[in-house]
């Protein structure tokens, strides 16, 4: 019988602590055939099992351009994520998916792209970012606008640094509200490099990024048409 609820088993190959209570797993399927055949589209999600506690939904944070493994990033909040947080390298957990919608990355070829994410939302966007960066030559200017409530809450700190150092990306420096001491002004981005991305930052200056409704309004004001905004 084809049991659509039966998860795949996956081993945790690597664990990275991203922020307080936020953790990333690199997962490798136990079934070698599946490692090769597993396919997903960027932006899709899965259900992650901590056996005995249940399953919980979050995105696949890695890019489909990276084969052989998937990554996920989650915040410890409830019963299942609490259970996942107790697992160690080498432990087995469950995954079923991929499910849901995806970003039509191939439609963006030749275009300039501004990525906007806040806090724990970066994992979804990260999948898209790496998908684009791994095929960098197909896309125009790339701007990454990312912020979190506090510096500590920024995820993928190493990768942010890497993006900051790349000459082919216009990053906004990690963006946190002014209430986080020592971070005043960090939301400003290098004005000469990003065109409308810069304008977005000024329009949006100092406000939280985490409510997509507000971000969308700012973008519309700047003349982005609704059809070119993907969420």
């Amino acid at each position: 019988m084809d049991n659509i609820y039966l998860p795949y088993l996956a081993k945790i190959e690597e664990i990275r602590d991203e922020a307080p209570d936020v953790r990333s797993f690199k997962l490798v399927f136990e079934d070698p055939a599946l490692r090769d055949s597993f396919e997903f589209k960027t932006g899709q999600f899965g259900l992650y099992s901590a056996f005995g506690l249940g399953e919980s939904t979050f995105c696949i944070a890695s890019s489909p351009t990276r084969k052989g493994y998937i990554q996920c990033t989650f915040r410890r909040t409830g019963r299942v994520t609490g259970g996942l947080a107790q697992l160690s390298v080498g432990d087995t957990m469950g995954f079923r998916g991929p499910y849901g919608n995806w970003f039509p990355v191939d439609d963006w070829k030749g275009k300039d792209i501004v990525f906007i994410a806040g806090g724990i939302c970066l994992p979804t966007v990260r999948s898209v970012i790496w998908n684009v960066l791994d095929r960098r030559q197909h896309f125009g200017n790339i701007t990454i606008v990312y912020g979190a409530r506090t510096v500590a809450d920024l995820v993928y700190k190493d990768e942010l640094k890497g993006w900051d150092e790349r000459s082919d990306i216009t990053p906004s420096r990690p963006w946190t509200p002014a209430r986080d001491p020592g971070m005043e002004g960090q939301g400003r981005v290098r004005a000469d490099r990003i065109g409308r991305g810069r304008a977005f930052c000024e329009e949006h200056g100092g406000r939280d990024l985490h409510i997509s409704k507000f971000v969308l309004n700012s973008l519309l004001k700047l003349g982005f048409d609704e059809g070119s905004v993907y969420t």
């Binding site: 049991n3 609820y5 039966l6 998860p7 088993l9 056996f51 080498g90 087995t92 957990m93």
Partner: peptide, 8 residues
């Protein structure tokens, strides 16, 4: 070291 999983 492992998890045994069986569909019903």
């Amino acid at each position: 070291d492992s998890v045994g999983l069986k569909g019903v």
